[in-house]
Amino acid sequence: MSAADEGGAVVAMDADVVELLLRVVDDVDALVADPGIAGAEVARRLVPDAHRDDPEAAADYRRVVGPQLAQERSEAAATMRAGLLAADQSSAASAAAPAADAALVDTAVSLAADAGLGDAATSLSTVWHEAAAGSTTRSRVVDELSRVCERAARSARKRGDAELEGKLTAVRDELLSMAPVSAAVVEVRLSPAEVEAWMLTVNHARLAIGTACGVSEEQQVWAPDDPRIPQMHVYDLLTDLLDHLVREAG
């Protein structure tokens, strides 16, 4: 692996992390569109008041700067999404046995049609076969397709068609077993401008999660059943990624 260009960065990650980061980018997009969706405290943190003691000046500042921040954050998120999708496609293109995967998807579509869910499966199949267009990731479609199979299997069971249910369950399991194909390490090479976009987006997500979860300066111990733990796992991953980007970019 060669070093990144000056100011740029090389990020290596598992393919499932690519998937997770795409969901994070989706969340950032939603927050940019409506900072209030995660609560007033998160909204205040994402768009702070520049004037603490002057509500009128603060409102003026928000009116002028708010849209600029939203556009910049949206563009940064789009840049990060494009980089992640390109990396995912590169990974998928180098994965083994795509023909076998395609045959399995076609089987899933056919069986789901038999169980009355053909439209949903056909739609996902179309996206899967057009994955090169970059509209989504291959593993995301596989995940959704396996859910269609599961719903179709339940539908078949209700109709008393045990044979169809069994076939659909088997196809679903086989689809899910494709995960190791997508578990390859993905390498993303970022230009200085892309590093900047990734840092803005990753930090935006960290601020939202950290504020919503009540991250504080003190060492925090989370109970095993704390509902914030899944989000904090994402937060920790984003922390590592941001720290890596800062160090790589110098």
């Binding site: 768009v47 702070p48 520049a50 004037h51 603490r52 921040l69 954050r73 935006h204």
Partner: peptide
């Protein structure tokens, strides 16, 4: 300056 710092997620104010 404040807007650039806000864009980068820092908690900045001016006075």
């Amino acid at each position: 300056d404040c807007s650039r710092l806000h864009a980068h997620g820092l908690w900045a104010t001016m006075e």
